[in-house]
Computed example of a mutant assay.
Amino acid sequence: MYFPTAGIETALWLPPVVAFAISFFTSMGGVSGAFLLLPFQMSFLGYAHPSVSATNQLFNIVAIPSGVYRYVKEGRMVWPLTWMVIVGTLPGVLIGAVVRVAWLPDPRDFKLFVGLVMLYIGARMVKSLFFSSADKDAAAANEKRFQAMARRQGRQDADSPAPSVRVLSFTVKHLSYSFYEETYTVSTIGIFSLCFIVGIVGGIYGIGGGSIVAPFFISFWKLPVYTVAGAALMGTFVTSVAGVAFYQVLAPFYPTMSVAPDWMLGLLFGLGGMGGMYLGARCQKFVPSKYIKLFLVAVLLYTGIKYTVDFLR
């Protein structure tokens, strides 16, 4: 099938199948899968126009709600954190869209940007896998209890919820919540600042911003992946809606450039991602966080190194 906006031709079944496979694994870490779909579109499909960023965000809009639904149903949505992600990343995403169209329309330059972003996030996650032994032992013991309960609930009822999140306090200075006998506290100002910066990066990249936030929450603030995934996905969804609308508005100002999303291709990716995210969110409580992190790190570093090397050749 030929997709005129993207200027590519591919089998009709390929986009949803690829999106399903990617989203199943990435949704466990609070990442929509868009950050991996973009390299797939650029390298495999040959779709490198600025509109690929908007198409990626369209995928988020269609795919993410199913995963968020599972996290809400299981009581693992930290709503104050969710709203901070949305409010912080939204203006950054709009700024990023302008930067992408005005200063990074060349595929080669954009690949370098993507590669450097992936390398940085991957490096941060590698560091998070080797934090102090005391924290590591405490986290391991806590996760062992969590996994044991998840397995017991799984044997009783596949839809039974994992231990839910309880917000203890939310002020202009900090957010504090508990999850399975552990308390986590983060700076409200710090979260807002981070979300604004990664929102710009996410707007340029075409992944909404929330997907980049999740690895930072895990590596900087040592928050458990089981509690940040839902907030990151919800933030990505809302900012992606704004991003797609903004790219569509920008399109008439760049008549010689493909800026608006390829709606058919984005919908096909989104339908596959919808199924993958739902199953990934449902299975997350049975998968040790170490394996989720290792998967994300491997993909980030491989893609980041490949794109950086390609630019330097």
Rank of each mutant, 00 (worst) to 15 (best):
R124N: 05
R152L: 13
V101W: 05
D106Y: 02
F146T: 08
K127C: 07
A141G: 03
L129P: 05
A123I: 02
D106H: 06
L112R: 00
L104Y: 02
A140W: 12
A102Q: 09
F146L: 09
A148K: 06
E143F: 04
D106A: 12
G122F: 03
Y120H: 12
N142T: 08
V114F: 07
G115V: 01
L129A: 13
L112T: 07
G154K: 00
A123W: 00
P105C: 01
K144F: 02
V126Q: 08
D109W: 14
F110A: 00
R151G: 08
A140K: 11
D106M: 04
A141Y: 09
V114E: 07
N142I: 03
L119T: 04
K127G: 05
F131K: 12
M125A: 02
L104C: 02
E143Q: 04
N142W: 00
R152Y: 14
R155I: 09
M125T: 01
K144P: 01
G115M: 03
K127I: 10
Q147D: 15
K111A: 12
N142G: 15
A148L: 05
D109Q: 15
L104M: 04
F131D: 10
A141T: 10
R152P: 06
P107C: 06
M125N: 01
R151S: 10
S128T: 04
R145A: 10
A141V: 12
V126H: 06
M125R: 00
A139E: 14
A150Q: 05
S128W: 07
F146G: 02
S133Y: 13
S133M: 12
D109K: 15
F110G: 01
A150K: 08
K136Y: 14
S128P: 11
Q153C: 09
F131Q: 10
R100M: 10
S133G: 10
Y120Q: 09
L116V: 14
G122I: 02
A138T: 10
G115C: 05
L112S: 04
Y120R: 08
Q153K: 13
Y120L: 13
Q153L: 13
G122L: 03
G122N: 05
R152D: 15
A134K: 15
S132K: 13
R152T: 12
S133K: 15
S133R: 15
M118C: 06
A148R: 05
F130L: 08
A134W: 15
D137G: 07
M125F: 03
P105G: 02
R145F: 07
Q153F: 11
G154Q: 03
R100G: 02
D135G: 14
M149A: 14
V117F: 02
V114W: 03
A140F: 10
R155P: 00
K111C: 09
A134Y: 15
L119W: 05
P107H: 01
S133T: 12
F113P: 06
D109A: 13
K127P: 01
F131C: 08
D109L: 14
K127L: 10
A123D: 10
Y120N: 12
A140L: 13
S128D: 00
M149E: 15
A150I: 07
D137W: 08
F146W: 07
S128V: 07
R145C: 07
M125D: 05
F113S: 12
L112C: 03
A102W: 08
R145L: 11
